[in-house]
């Protein structure tokens, strides 16, 4: 992902209209843990308690463009590249993102069984082993690209299959048949 250096970074909130995005400058912004909550401080004087990070592109570019919402769900601003934050802030951001996003990435399909239109998967994922049941694959399969799919199980949890071509032929068959 290339960042556009031509967009000026505005940090003076009073100078902008409520309809402009506020680009947060990582060099003047810190995240700290206060009483179990995350406090976002800008320029050393403005701060928000209970700041929540949200990825603008959780699927296509999860590591850039992290937006922040305050406790009431109002937009604070957005960071282009969080890797420029200080060490502690990066750590807190990583923890908060880990808690907010729980979409296991499938590493291996142990077994797959199709019975009466319901698919029973036994998976090894980035979040540990899990058995899931998917009813009506067609409606619960989301094609993100030619090789990547998201599958929603019967309980509403989503599972990321990053590259279906690395799957065993049987699993690949089940997915292709419903694409």
């Amino acid at each position: 992902m290339t960042l556009d250096p031509d967009i000026p970074i505005k940090t003076a909130p009073e100078a902008r209209s409520p309809f402009d995005l506020l680009w947060l400058d990582p060099s003047v912004m810190t995240l700290r843990r206060i009483a179990g909550l995350t406090r976002l401080t800008l320029d050393g004087d403005r701060s928000w308690l209970r700041a929540t990070p949200a990825r603008a592109f959780p699927i296509s570019d999860p590591d850039h463009y992290i937006g922040f919402l305050d406790g009431l769900g109002n937009d604070i601003g957005i960071v282009r590249d969080p890797s420029e934050l200080d060490e502690t802030s990066r750590q807190i951001l990583a923890e908060d993102l880990e808690v907010r996003y729980f979409v296991p990435v499938v590493q291996r399909v142990v077994s797959v069984k199709l019975e009466f239109g319901t698919v029973y998967w036994k998976l090894e994922t980035s979040r540990g082993p899990r058995d899931i049941v998917v009813r009506n694959m067609r409606d619960n399969l989301q094609e993100l690209s030619a090789i990547r799919v998201l599958i929603t199980d019967i309980e509403g949890n989503r599972y990321d299959f990053p590259d279906i071509n690395t799957l065993d032929p049987e699993s690949l068959g089940v997915i292709l048949r419903h694409q």
Binding site: A35, P58, Y101, F102
Partner: peptide
């Protein structure tokens, strides 16, 4: 949250995330 949630409690001076669930 996304793909999961958590049960939190507030005490007089602290917010404690207790458990997470899918």
């Amino acid at each position: 949250h996304i793909g999961n949630g958590s049960i939190e409690v507030d005490t007089a001076d602290l917010t404690i995330p207790l458990v997470r669930f899918t």
